[in-house]
Amino acid sequence: MITFDGVTKRYADGTVAVDDLSLEVPDGAITVFVGPSGCGKTTSLRMINRMIDPTGGRILLDGKDVTAVDPATLRRGIGYVIQQAGLFPHRRIVDNIATVPFLLGWDKKKARARAMELLERVGLDPKMARRYPYQLSGGQQQRVGVARALAADPPVLLMDEPFSAVDPIVRTSLQEELLRLQSELHKTIVFVTHDIDEAVKLGDTVAVLRVGGKLAQVAAPADLLSDPADDFVREFLGRDRGIRRLGFVPAKNLALDPAPEGVTPEGHGTFNPARDSLRAALDAALLSPDGLAVAVDDDGRVLGVVGEAALVGAARG
């Protein structure tokens, strides 16, 4: 667990980047720091691995003040991913991934084997191993950046706007890849972004910061959408909060009516109650001319239907 205990960062010129931040980052989950530029989210992240030291308060990593640990030693135990990947241009991909294992004095063979394993794990062709960074696309470089951060199997991963510089389609696939990896690895991840949609999509917990480095709200994404703490958070979340919140409500508790004669998945919007959200069910109803969302199972068999009125009722909770 990472604990921010009244952390402040004030620069010599008087600007306050982070102001009395207190927060707990739970183990094995993704905590997202989100906010507009100048809100101190990156500074907060960089204080965890001592790229920046706080001017007040303490950051505890598993109960131990990080400033008591030698920076280099501390950092070797924390994965770090940045926006432009920051790969070493002069080294092949496999050696880039193995950077920290090499630093930790692993045997060369073992380090490279580990790098190859991670290369596949982040969804890259093993043939990429022999290439140099310039031969990879931005999205591929970013995957290598993630693999490199995971190389020495650190329990904590810091990710500073890692997907901001790639195009939307690649970003979506990288986000899904991260969620998939996390479901296997259960790392303690601190993720910084300025994109509230990304925050809500990836975070188990979302911390919204406002300009001047003050914490505005910490909550699970669904709670954030349903109960913003104040006008700033409400505005930052943007429009369509009501609809977006439904994305976090599972559809499995909906009461299904038996399908009327002649209602088939063809010509109707469908959803799968076992996996989809209320938002998908409502969308299915809106796509159907008769306003009925058709529930189907994994094999496409019709389980029943739900009407618009029932869906809106369920959405109101």
Binding site: R75, I82, L103
Partner: peptide
């Protein structure tokens, strides 16, 4: 040298001289 390279090198736990000789020097060559 690319500031991101420097940042990443420190962030992974290279010490000052390691950053210089393992990351910056090869790029400056």
């Amino acid at each position: 040298a690319d500031p991101d390279l420097r940042d990443a090198a420190y962030g992974m736990g290279l010490r000052g001289s390691q950053v210089l000789f393992r990351a910056l020097l090869p790029v400056a060559l």
